Amino acid sequence: MLHKLNLEHILFLDIETVPEHENFDALGEEMQYLWADKTKYQRKEDFSPEEFYDRAGIWAEFGKIVCISVGYFTTKGETRSFRTTSFYGEEKQLLIDFKNLIETHFSKAHHLLCAHNGKEFDFPYIARRMIIHSIALPYKLNLFGKKPWEVPHLDTLDLWKFGDYKHYTSLKLLTHILKIPSPKDDIDGSMVRDVYYKENDIDRIIIYCEKDTVAVAQILLRLRQEELLSEDEVISV
């Protein structure tokens, strides 16, 4: 079945998130309480709510998206290319721009969204942040009433699990064992918060996010036993 998919019908994506505020003190009193309550089992006795706040970007209720990078295949004759672009800046606007891309170019029934661990993180995170900003969900993210086989999402982590629901493999590990050039050659997810708030370097985050998007496409190619993308075939627009 995987070989029957038309690669040009797939929108690959990755998101980068950070805590919605730079530090715990910026939260209102009620949100501070809710944060402490939300994370009490993760923190246990090891961290105070203040100390744990640098991880707030993991939760859509306490974090925000600072970059969505997308990529898609195009073919002209024998020439294959993979084009990437990114949405960044004020969160509500980047979500609107991303939604417009989906509804304009990837809205057909055969179109799919693809990410690594997307079903557990990227897709629900985007949907939750859209709802928080009062943005109507695009069809590709509105799963209400859909049967499992009707959900238009591909997840390279799911594909790698081969039915083993207990198994988790990070993007970094999977690219390494599949001999795919690592996207983690500059920063990793744990550093995005500091790069955003302390270094104010959104360009560095965009580059990192686009590399992850390319890596997701490379994994799908390897699962299909196809030749990996070369540097010349990847075009940032």
Rank of each mutant, 00 (worst) to 15 (best):
L2N: 07
H3G: 09
K4E: 11
L5R: 00
N6E: 12
I10G: 02
D14G: 01
P19E: 02
P19K: 06
E20N: 09
D25T: 10
D25F: 15
A26E: 15
E30V: 14
M31T: 13
M31H: 14
Q32D: 09
Y33H: 14
L34C: 12
W35K: 05
A36N: 10
K38V: 01
K38T: 09
Y41P: 09
Q42T: 08
Q42Y: 12
R43G: 00
D46N: 15
F47I: 07
E51S: 15
F52L: 08
W59Q: 07
K64E: 10
V66P: 10
S69Q: 05
S69H: 05
Y72P: 00
T79P: 04
T79C: 11
T85E: 08
S86K: 02
G89F: 02
E91I: 02
K92T: 14
Q93E: 14
K99S: 11
N100L: 11
K108M: 08
L112H: 09
G118L: 06
D122S: 07
I126Y: 05
R129H: 08
H133C: 07
S134K: 15
A136G: 13
L137V: 07
N142I: 06
L143N: 12
G145E: 05
G145K: 05
K147E: 14
K147C: 09
P152L: 01
H153E: 01
T156F: 02
L159N: 04
L159C: 06
K161M: 12
K161V: 05
K161G: 03
G163C: 04
D164L: 10
D164H: 09
H167W: 13
T169E: 14
S170N: 06
H176L: 11
H176D: 12
I177S: 09
I180K: 02
I180N: 00
P183A: 09
D185P: 09
I187T: 07
D188P: 11
M191K: 14
M191G: 00
D194F: 11
D194A: 15
Y197F: 13
D201V: 05
D201F: 06
D203P: 01
R204Y: 04
I205W: 03
I205Y: 03
I205A: 02
I206V: 15
C209G: 05
A215L: 05
V216Q: 03
V216G: 01
A217K: 03
L220A: 03
R222I: 06
R222E: 00
E226H: 03
E226G: 03
L229A: 06
S230E: 12
E231Q: 12
D232T: 11
E233W: 05
E233M: 13
